[in-house]
Simulated assay, not measured.
Amino acid sequence: MEIKTPNGEKILSVKRGVTFFRSDVEVFDEKDRLIGLFKQKFWSFGGKFEIDDKNGNSICTLQGKWTGWDFKFMKAEKEIAHVSKKWTGIGKEFFTSADNYVLEIDNSVPQDDVVRPLIMAAIMCIDMVLKE
């Protein structure tokens, strides 16, 4: 899966290997360089991922609610971002597989922080691992 600009230029991509019980998702930048990993926790209600940088150092966690609609990024007991599913109407919800998510990143996260592109990639990770 990829995130592209309106001009079609790739910004981020995610790749998931074949797994049975737990998924690890790799996140790559526009030049296909590894920038981080999402490591799914085996037993968690709603879904939980440890988010690591390219060297395997833990950056933050992504925790979903058991309802599957809300996910929050936690770093040192502080919420730094939030992803929620947006209701698109009964017709679209029941008759298509399309989902819309809203992403909010706290202003305290610097623009050049390595976690920002990983937060953006989380939407693809959530959809790929938990919703497919």
Rank of each mutant, 00 (worst) to 15 (best):
K65Y: 05
V102E: 08
F42Y: 08
P117W: 03
M128L: 15
M124F: 04
S13C: 06
D106M: 01
D99F: 06
K39R: 15
M74W: 08
I35N: 05
F49R: 00
Y101V: 00
T5F: 07
S44F: 10
E26D: 15
W69P: 06
T88V: 11
D29W: 04
E30M: 09
L37W: 08
I35H: 06
L12I: 11
D32R: 03
G8A: 01
D32H: 06
G91T: 05
E26C: 09
S108W: 06
K15F: 11
E93V: 05
E9T: 02
L37H: 12
K48P: 01
S44Y: 11
G56F: 09
F21D: 05
P6W: 05
M128Y: 12
I35Q: 11
A98E: 10
S44P: 04
T96Q: 02
L118V: 00
R22N: 13
G17A: 07
F73C: 05
M74T: 08
K10Q: 05
T88H: 07
G47C: 00
T5W: 06
V14W: 02
S23G: 11
D112A: 08
L34F: 01
A76C: 08
V25F: 03
V115T: 15
P110S: 10
K85P: 04
I126N: 03
P110I: 12
T19K: 10
E2T: 09
K86T: 13
K75S: 14
D52K: 11
W43S: 15
P117H: 02
L118F: 06
A121K: 01
V83P: 01
K86Q: 12
E30Y: 14
K15C: 15
F42K: 12
Q40G: 00
E132N: 14
P6L: 07
A98G: 02
Q40E: 12
N107E: 09
I123N: 07
A81Y: 01
E50T: 08
R116G: 02
V18I: 15
A98I: 13
K54E: 13
N7E: 14
N57C: 08
S108V: 15
V109K: 00
V109S: 00
T61M: 12
A122R: 06
C60N: 07
S44I: 07
T19H: 10
D53V: 07
E9V: 05
N7K: 15
A76M: 13
I119M: 10
L34T: 03
K39C: 06
I3N: 03
A121F: 01
E2P: 00
G91W: 13
K75H: 13
V109H: 03
M128N: 10
I105E: 01
E2H: 04
I80R: 00
L118R: 01
H82T: 04
G64E: 00
L103T: 12
G56R: 02
K131N: 13
H82K: 12
I126H: 03
